[in-house]
């Protein structure tokens, strides 16, 4: 699926009109919890190799949106197409295969408490249909831990790790399956500015090394400035504005300015 798009990438691509492959296409998505409308007609595309930042206040439906993309939540109407597959009409086994191409970094890290770092990282590999040898598993674990700079933590339990370390290990766990798409749910929330910056830099490195398409859910403007190629601003379950970082930083809209610290 290809489409002619024009967006200005602040860090990676500077072309204004490029033919790019769509990896995720969301169309007219609606979801309510009881009487509370959470998503109200969301539509957007994610292109190959881009970092799309979804910005918005807490409760604006950002996390719900990416959970719909991996089918942790089911939308009431609308369609989601991931790498050419309509996920509403997909079989369970095909959904599992598709999920193996998607890395999901949870807000809390979601490391398995009963397993140490090594076992956490081995978990997705041991459950893969492709049988890895013990040597391959060991190599994969070492490689991803080196990538996130935490090889020394291999035998630690999650409870022994700091917030930043947990995020890095969680990131390593998603990278171990060589994902083509990365979904980050508030990757810098609860971290100090130095660690937040390290995580943001790591997101860019992953994008460079793995050539992934990423959706980054955040309300951390420093993270937005470091990672965003394109930004979607959500407000009350709908897309308020879409554009580049420059579009947002130069906007006169008071609501947008309130995010970028100009009010």
């Amino acid at each position: 699926m290809k489409e002619l798009t024009n967006y200005t990438a602040s860090t990676a691509n500077s072309s204004t009109s490029t033919e790019r492959e769509i990896v995720i296409s969301v169309s007219n998505l609606y979801l309510s919890f009881g009487s509370q409308a959470v998503l109200q007609g969301i539509s957007f595309n994610l292109y190959q190799g881009e970092n799309l930042v979804i910005l918005g206040k807490s409760g604006s439906g950002k996390s719900v949106l990416i959970k719909c993309i991996v089918q942790l939540l089911k939308a009431q109407s609308g369609s989601i197409n991931v790498m050419g597959e309509n996920i509403d009409a997909i079989t369970n086994s095909n959904l599992d295969e598709l999920r193996k191409k998607i890395g999901f970094l949870f807000q809390s890290g979601a490391l398995y408490d009963s397993m140490n770092v090594r076992e956490n990282l081995e978990f997705p590999l041991r459950r893969n249909k492709r049988k890895y040898t013990e040597q391959e598993i060991k190599e994969h674990v070492t490689l991803v831990l080196e990538r996130v700079g935490l090889l020394s933590a291999i035998d630690k339990m999650p409870a022994q790790l700091s917030g930043g370390m947990r995020k890095r290990i969680s990131l390593a766990r998603t990278l171990i399956i060589d994902p083509q798409i990365m979904l980050y749910d508030e990757p810098t929330t609860g971290l100090d500015p130095v660690t937040s910056n390290e995580i943001s830099q790591l997101i860019n490195q992953i994008q460079d090394q793995y050539k992934t398409a990423s959706i980054i859910i955040t309300h951390d403007i420093a993270c937005v400035r470091t990672t965003a190629h394109r930004i979607l601003l959500m407000h009350e379950g709908a897309i308020y504005k879409e554009g580049s970082l420059i579009d947002f930083e130069t906007s006169d809209d008071p609501f947008i300015q309130s995010f970028f610290g100009k009010l």
Binding site: K67, E97, F123
Partner: peptide, 8 residues
Amino acid sequence: DAMEVSAT
């Protein structure tokens, strides 16, 4: 949820 998205 993490288990589910890792296809387990």
